[in-house]
Design a protein around this nucleic acid. Structure first.
Length: 216
DNA sequence: CTTTGGATCGTCT
DNA sequence: GACGATCCAAAGG
């Protein structure tokens, strides 16, 4: 995926990142869920309050990986968008494992079902072995061992859409997208798959299909 | 299947 | 000093 792909608004890049592959060595996963984070105009973004040591990568050139540490134990990874100087990013929230599944399982002991290997932003980093060491990695050159490639599978014509997960502020903005019907999409409080998608008959009701309930 | 609470620490106020 | 762009085990239906 070329540099110019990322040099756009995260609201545009997010949905078209779906179904692309993230590759690290033998491991590869298809991106099936993402969220957009903008900058000064997005209160939920790490970049909202300006440049800091942690979020510096978000303010740098597009096509790099922004990795941050949260909850005292988890890493999460984003693809940086917009030209150098403007902070935006797309959070990678879930993968469908495609290759190197043995390595992913080794990185996540105790997980048996493939669809649980990378069905969340921190799980994704564990499965791929992504840590703070990869903050700033160039996804375009692949020089740091991480790349995002297009293997010809197009993004969904009509992705699933919902508000972003786990936020206090800006909790209403519908900036989360996923591949409809994909079993690797994270279980969230807001529902996957509004209606039956073209090729998916009719799924049984799931926890996430309900309207958001109070608290949080 | 769902809900609840604990873990755990860097970052910014 | 408070709070996360989270995950999992445990416990209850």
């Amino acid at each position: 995926v070329p540099r110019r792909f990322y040099a756009a608004d995260a609201l545009e890049v997010g949905p078209v990142l779906l179904n692309k592959l993230i590759v690290r060595g033998a491991r590869a996963g298809r991106i099936v869920e993402v969220e957009a984070y903008r900058g000064f105009d997005d209160p939920a973004s790490h970049a909202y309050r300006g440049l800091t040591k942690r979020n510096a990568t978000m303010f740098g050139p597009p096509g790099r990986l922004y990795v941050y540490f949260t909850y005292g134990m988890h890493w999460c990874a984003n693809a940086v968008c917009m030209p150098d100087g403007t902070a935006q990013a797309v959070l990678l929230r879930a993968l469908a494992p495609v290759a190197g599944v043995d390595e992913m399982r080794a990185a996540r002991p105790g997980i048996h079902l493939d669809r649980h290997l990378a069905s969340g932003p921190a799980k994704l980093c564990q499965a791929m072995g992504i840590t703070g060491d990869h903050d700033g990695a160039d996804l375009v050159s692949g020089d740091d061992g991480l790349t995002i490639v297009d293997d010809g599978v197009p993004p969904p014509e009509v992705p699933g859409v919902s508000p972003r997960v786990g936020l206090r502020s800006a909790a209403d903005l519908p900036w989360r997208w996923w591949v409809p019907g994909d079993p690797n999409v994270s279980r969230a409080r807001f529902g996957p798959a509004p209606g039956p998608s073209p090729d998916q008959p009719a799924r049984r009701r799931r926890a996430g299909d309900r309207a958001p309930r109070g608290r949080r």
